[in-house]
């Protein structure tokens, strides 16, 4: 069986075990609080099945479907961002252009494989054109913070996230779809392991203000576990075992700060979840927050050291 086949089989095995354990825990839960936690856990597991099938299916179908899947995720994440972030009527055109012009062009450049323009289109051209268009509305109230929101919204949900499928452009001499799989599996395993270790051994809160559910024990356990998985998955990649350990450490640390920073933004906006489309998890942005930070870093580390 190919390495890809092993990962898929492994994911199916983990989900099957999680489903069985969840059903057993549901039977045993006695307190209302415990039942609520288990109900949420099982909702998460059900959503994982759906997410694993969609992601695995898109990846198996090829680069075009993978890029289109991430374009769709960016669209939903940007929508969740603007549902919570305030805007004024003067931002309307800039928002419209973010959704329907900047996002499609950026992912179009990815489909086209034009790396040079892909790298600068949003941070240079969109960032100059959008505020220029906003000024035409003639509304100067909060102009600086409004512009900052427009730009960072685009940066996080579109530009950063798109670096996951951008791995497909790299010429590493190996199957680059496996790099996308590697990134997503390590980052998500890290999230799940942090949650599990946190629930089992969590005592010391890491930062109650920003993210009340994160604990030091969860972090250490989750990171260690995810790095082990990253080392085990090294055959998918052009990395040696030691390099895989370094790469997965970069992914989990960046991914952790992704969740942490987006949690701070969310709390600043007065919300607990970004949305409601993924049962048990919240919104798309709640699920991809770690990828948003990990993807560009993993992309550049790989591009610098593993491409000619």
């Amino acid at each position: 069986m190919s390495a890809f086949g092993w990962v898929i089989a492994g994911a199916l095995a983990i989900l099957t075990v999680a489903t069985i354990v969840g059903a057993e825990l549901e039977r045993r839960a006695k307190t209302p609080e415990g039942r609520a936690t288990i109900a949420n856990l099982n909702a998460r597991t059900r959503s994982w099945w759906v997410m694993a099938l969609i992601f695995g299916g898109a990846l198996a179908l090829g680069p075009t479907t993978t890029i289109l899947l991430f374009a769709g995720l960016s669209f939903m994440a940007l929508r969740e961002f603007w549902t919570l972030a305030p805007s004024r009527p003067g931002d309307h055109r800039a928002l419209f252009l973010s959704f329907f012009v900047a996002l499609p062009i950026h992912y179009g450049l990815l489909l086209d494989g034009w790396y040079g323009l892909f790298a600068v289109f949003i941070p240079v051209y969109a960032f100059l054109i959008l505020p220029a268009i906003s000024t035409l509305a003639g509304d100067v109230k909060d102009f600086l913070s409004r512009t900052a929101r427009v730009q960072w919204g685009l940066m996080l949900t579109v530009y950063m996230l798109s670096h996951a499928p951008a791995l497909l452009m790299l010429d590493t001499g190996s199957d680059t779809a496996m790099l996308v799989l590697y990134l997503v599996v390590v980052a998500q395993i890290s999230d799940v392991a942090q949650y599990v270790f946190g629930k089992l051994f969590g005592r010391t809160r890491f930062s109650p203000n920003v993210s009340p559910s994160k604990t030091v024990e969860g972090l250490v356990g989750g990171w260690a576990f995810a790095v082990l998985v990253g080392v085990a998955l090294a055959p998918l990649t052009p990395f040696s075992l030691l390099q895989a350990a370094g790469m997965s450490l970069a992914i989990v640390v960046a991914g952790f700060f992704g969740g942490f920073v987006l949690s701070a933004v969310k709390r600043d906006l007065g919300a607990k979840d970004w949305g409601y489309v993924i049962q048990g998890h919240g919104g798309v942005l709640d699920r991809v927050d770690s990828i948003i930070f990990a993807a560009p870093i993993f992309f550049h580390l790989t591009r610098y050291w593993f491409t000619p």
Partner: peptide
């Protein structure tokens, strides 16, 4: 915010 008065551009916030 989806379509303010006077605009025909749609911004798909939830």
């Amino acid at each position: 915010r989806v379509m303010p008065k006077g605009s025909f551009l749609i911004v798909p916030v939830t």
